[in-house]
Every structure is written in C-alpha cells, then in structure tokens.
C-alpha cells in the first residue's frame, strides 16, 4: 500500500509540483481579494484533479499489468486510489476548521466547526467517489461522459425542485430547526455510506477485471 502510493507520488512528481504552485497562486489571490472562505473550496477540486492525473499516468504506463501480479491484493490497489481522496479530504477539513478557529474572518459563515468539517469531508469526496467506480467500470473516457450526463440529471432535478419554492423553503425550515450536531452527524453518515458503497463497488469491479 505504501509502495503503491509512493509509486503514484513519484510518477506524478512534476504534475504535483505544478499543482501545488497553482494552488498557492490561487490561494494567494483569494486571500488578497479578501475571500478567505473560498480557500477550503480548493480542496473540493484537488481530489478530482489528483484522481484524473493518477488515472492518466496509470493508463499510459499500463501499470496495472505490472502491479497485479506483484505482491499486492487487487483490493489494496483500489484502496491506494481512495486513500488519496481521503487524505486530501481530511487535510481540507482540518484546514477549514483551523481557518474558522484562527482566521476570525467575518466573511466566514457562522457555522459550528464540526459542521464545517463534516461539510468539507462530504464535498471533497462526493464527486470522486461517484466517479471512481464509473472509471473502474468503463474507463476514464466513458466515465467522464457518463459523469457529464449524471451532472445534467442532477442539474435538471434541482432546477425542477427550484421551481417548487415552497418545498425548498419548508425543507430549509426543517433543517434549521434541527440540532446542528444531528445535521453534522447526518452529513458524516451520508459521506461514510457513499464512500463505503463506492469503495466496495470499485473493489468488486476491479476484482473481475482482466488485463
């Protein structure tokens, strides 16, 4: 597992270096513009970019054919992909919470720290974990198409609901009346469930894959 992640890091060393520089520039710009609250949002994009890069590098070198016969379980190879998403999500959550606790920026939303952490974990992983099983099943190209289609469905769904303002208002009312701790727990629960299901699906797909 460590070996596999090491391989990923050195395989992408140049791209990662570039990514870090870009993130710093964007971060710097954001802070200068006084929009500190936008900083954690970068962590929603990073896992997606990472997964995309890892996938591209793997596909180019056909590395699966090398690591599957090696001393790895297929499950571990899948786990090494998810691990990157989870690590970035946790860093994002810690970053967002510390921003909230130490930055004392008025622009930050008035939310308790655990809600911020839960939201970060959810937002940073959700897209990746929907995408990963699709990528394992259909390959990166088709998965992207399916994902775009999925995006439109979700978009259509929300614009339909958006038309129904009373429904939204009532949902928001209900949510606000709930204890924020319960909301936090619910978000964490949904996140864990999504990640778990996604991981199990990916493992099952990858276990049957032939190279």
């Amino acid at each position: 597992m460590i070996a596999l992640m090491y391989k990923d890091l050195v395989a992408l060393k140049k791209a990662l270096f570039l990514l870090v520089i870009v993130l710093f520039l964007v971060g710097f710009y954001t802070v200068q513009q006084g929009k500190v609250m936008a900083l954690p949002l970068m962590f929603i994009l990073v896992p997606l970019i990472l997964i995309g890069m890892l996938w591209g590098s793997d596909a180019k070198s056909n590395v699966d054919q090398y690591i599957i016969p090696g001393p790895n379980k297929r499950r571990t190879i899948v786990l090494s992909r998810y691990a990157f998403v989870w690590i970035v999500a946790v860093i994002g959550a810690v970053f967002a919470v510390s921003l909230k606790l130490f930055a004392k920026d008025s622009a930050l939303p008035e939310l308790p720290w655990y809600l911020i952490a839960a939201a970060m974990l959810f937002l940073a992983t959700v897209i990746s974990v929907i995408q990963l099983p699709l990528m394992y099943k259909f390959g990166a190209e088709k998965a992207r198409l399916i994902f775009v289609a999925l995006y439109f469905i979700v978009f259509a769904f929300f614009s339909y609901i958006g038309g129904n303002k009373e429904l939204i208002a009532s949902i928001i009312d209900k949510l606000i009346s709930l204890d924020s701790k319960i909301i936090g727990l619910a978000i964490v629960g949904v996140t864990l469930l999504l990640n778990g299901v996604s991981y199990i699906l990916s493992v099952a797909i990858y276990a049957k894959k032939e190279f």
């Binding site: 050195v10 395989a11 060393k13 090398y66 016969p69 001393p71 790895n72």
Partner: peptide
C-alpha cells in the same frame, strides 16, 4: 501477496510510469 513474491515476470515492456527514475523504481 507473500506467495506472489516467489513469482517474477518480465513483459515486452516495463509497464512502470515513465517519469520514475531507476532510483524511484528501486525504492518502490
């Protein structure tokens, strides 16, 4: 995985990421 260490294989290509150096490959 432990038993797989007993098997070695070489294909017609290396199938390792191209940006790795020999030192990287060795560490891996």
């Amino acid at each position: 995985p432990q038993m797989k260490k007993d098997i070695a294989y070489v294909f017609d290509d290396l199938y390792l990421p191209e940006d790795m150096t020999l030192n990287n490959v060795q560490n891996f």
